[in-house]
Computed example of a mutant assay.
Amino acid sequence: MVDESRLKFWLSKYQNPDIVLRDILTVTNFYHGLIPTQELYTFNDGSRKELVNLSGTIPVRFNGTIYNIPICIWLVDTHPNNAPISYVKPTADMAIKVSMYVDHSGKIYLPYLSDWVPNSSELLGLIQVMIVTFGEQPPVFAKSKENDVPYPTGSFMPQPGGNYRPPYPTGGYPPSSGYGNYPPYPPSSASGYPAYPTPYPPYPTPGGFGTPGSLVPGTGTIKEEHIRESLLTAIEEKLLRKMKEQFQQHQAEMETLKKTQEELRQGKVKLEGILGRMEKEQSDLDKNITLLKDKEQELDKAIEKISNQESIDVDDAVTTTAPLYKQLLNAFAEEAALEDAIYYMGEALRCGVIDLDIFLKQVRTLSRKQFMLRAVMQKCRQKAGLSC
């Protein structure tokens, strides 16, 4: 059972703690043999940092038998922007099987790690790729008593630097690594040498025809069950290759679907924004239509009321209550008329109807009258107590 509160405390210094927590919980739900812990990790430059890692075993099927492969996956504090750092952690009675996927120190090199894509590559997918790859090339083998060499008790991991996508190792298989691409036979429990204590059988043995003593004594012939076992092994290896190809194909399809899903999600957000603006504009338009209809009704009523009334003389309609106000009204009307006269005099000059001399003479006369009228209006407003 994973302690989520402690795990959240460990991930508090990570850049994306929620994403890392989700990936760890997803992996531990599928693979109960992996347990998250926090330990110090030393980089090439000597710097040390506390990182969360997943340590334990993953089930790998080899030649029809399931084995527990011990691994350790370090999650950097920039996860998932950078790939995890993965190692095989053999026990004291095991040795590392060097291959194109695992170097002598146990570090794991996979295309999934070197081609790690942020927000697309997942920790669960990495472990599934490990299971398929190690099912074809086991990363460890049990030590035999004859070539047993004490394994270093200190940290066997190199201190990687900031490069999380190292090139593939160029080293080959060691001379004592067994037959062909398979690890040597693990020692049996009858020899007195302890086997790897797991609920599954010991780590894989080479060959598809059983043990060297399985031939019929004295005849050198192969039994029918040996041929059957060889055929089953060949079929299993072919199925594993097909499964790996299908897994990679499905993974590429999933990445394409995720990208399409993200684009659709962004398009949905844009469409929702456009629909929201359209609904607001529709609401405003409805309000304006209602207001215009009300104003139209008011105008219709006013027109109907005016049409029913008798014609009114404008001069009779405008009346004053005192002689002072009448003088002010007459001065205002005459001043407005002079303003119009000056304007049309300017238009006549522009069109060439009158000469400049006539224009200037008439404008001086009209301006003098306009000035006097404005003075009268100001005097009247002062007497009436109106604002000037």
Rank of each mutant, 00 (worst) to 15 (best):
Q246R: 13
S387W: 08
F30V: 14
Y41K: 07
K326P: 03
T290D: 14
I85H: 00
L11I: 07
T65W: 06
R6T: 14
V132C: 02
E224F: 10
L21A: 11
V88L: 01
Q297H: 09
A190M: 07
T28H: 07
L271T: 10
D103E: 10
R48C: 13
Y67D: 09
P194L: 13
V98A: 11
Q246N: 15
S105T: 14
P160L: 03
L123H: 00
Q246I: 10
E122L: 07
Q137H: 10
N81F: 00
I289Q: 08
L299D: 03
H79V: 01
C388V: 14
T256E: 08
A375N: 15
F141S: 00
L366S: 10
F9D: 13
Q370L: 13
D300K: 15
Y196R: 08
I108N: 00
Q137L: 11
G154D: 10
W10C: 03
V132T: 02
N82T: 09
R6V: 13
A337F: 08
Q382D: 12
Y196H: 12
E122W: 03
D284G: 07
Y196I: 06
R374F: 03
P204Q: 04
E253C: 07
N163G: 09
G46P: 05
G172Q: 03
A234V: 12
G135I: 01
T57S: 08
Q261K: 12
I73T: 01
S99H: 03
I354A: 05
S121V: 01
M130A: 02
L51W: 02
S144L: 03
G352N: 05
G171S: 13
E4D: 06
K13V: 11
D316S: 15
R277T: 14
P90V: 02
R381Y: 03
S176Q: 10
S283V: 13
L40Y: 10
C380L: 14
P17Y: 05
G162D: 13
L215S: 04
I306D: 04
P59V: 10
P111K: 09
D18W: 04
T219I: 14
Q266N: 11
L34Q: 07
Y179T: 02
E236S: 15
G220K: 04
G135L: 02
L285W: 12
Q137W: 01
M94H: 00
M254T: 12
V149P: 01
A331R: 06
Y101P: 00
T321F: 13
D313T: 10
S47K: 11
K383A: 13
G346M: 05
E263H: 08
Q266G: 07
G125C: 03
P118Q: 09
M372C: 09
L292V: 08
A336C: 15
L7E: 02
N68G: 08
D93V: 05
D284H: 13
V129A: 01
Q261A: 15
P199K: 10
K301Q: 12
P217C: 06
N68M: 10
A92H: 09
I73Q: 00
G208N: 10
D3E: 14
E39M: 03
Y101M: 05
K305P: 01
I108M: 04
Q309E: 15
L329Q: 11
A331T: 09
L75H: 00
Y193A: 11
F332K: 13
